[in-house]
């Protein structure tokens, strides 16, 4: 554990708490892509069910895994049951097969061991890298977002960005490289570049998040 990874994980944790807070206080999931949230459940379940069979890593690791599975399922419940009328599928139109298909194919080709659990792990890594796309696509379509939604996305993007110095640190201190996680992680972080540009130049200066026409 190093400081980049710790702050990355905490940022990830914070992003989820921000999202739950947004939905509960506004009693609405307006502006949130259900597809992206459903993909995160798929990511967490496929990656963290290793709790059932893999070697124990640490209490921290176990707690975080349970938190991510539990909270992502809770968000789906909030969106599909509790605040269902506020969720608008007509603007959440990104095709899931464009993300699931390539993730399955990549996982079958690029994995560390051609075993069920390792292919599942690789699948979750590739899917996580792409899972934000329905949300960013929705943002693109509506052209604007509530400040709290942008804070959620910024915390999520910061988590990804912080994993990059974490890998550099691990490379120099432990000599370990996880090429699948690194390549997918860099792609994933790259997806946030446009968002971050607007977040820093507008939202953090008190302006509304609006995409240029």
């Amino acid at each position: 554990m190093n400081i980049f990874r710790l702050f990355g994980d905490l940022s990830h944790l914070a992003s989820i708490l921000i999202l739950i807070h947004k939905i509960q206080t506004s009693r609405s999931c307006r502006g949130i892509s259900f597809k992206t949230q459903a993909l995160y459940v798929a990511v967490f379940v496929t990656r963290y069910l290793d709790l059932l069979y893999a070697e124990h890593v640490s209490i921290y690791n176990t707690f975080m895994k349970l938190f991510f599975i539990g909270s992502s399922c809770y968000i789906l419940y909030l969106m599909k049951v509790r605040f269902r009328p506020t969720q608008d599928p007509s603007i959440d139109t990104f095709r899931l097969e464009y993300l699931l298909g390539p993730s399955v194919v990549l996982a079958l080709i690029f994995n560390y061991t051609f075993s069920f659990t390792e292919v599942l792990w690789a699948f979750s890594i590739y899917l996580e890298a792409l899972a934000i796309l329905p949300q960013l696509f929705m943002l693109q379509r509506t052209g604007e977002a509530e400040a709290i939604t942008t804070h959620y996305l910024a915390a999520l993007g910061a988590y990804r960005a912080l994993y990059i110095p974490n890998w550099l640190y691990r490379y120099f201190s432990e000599g370990t490289v996880d090429p699948i996680a690194v390549v997918a992680g860099i792609v994933q972080t790259g997806l946030y570049v446009d968002f971050f540009y607007i977040y820093f130049t507008k939202v953090l200066r008190g302006q509304k998040f609006e995409l240029p026409a």
Binding site: R5, D9, H12, R47, D50, A54, E55, V57, N61, M64, K65, F68, Y112, W121, Y163, N166, G175, T176, V177, D178, P179, A181
Partner: peptide, 10 residues
């Protein structure tokens, strides 16, 4: 270059 096992990152 070593293979991370178990996957210790989240």
């Amino acid at each position: 270059e070593s293979k991370p096992s178990p996957h210790d990152e989240l």
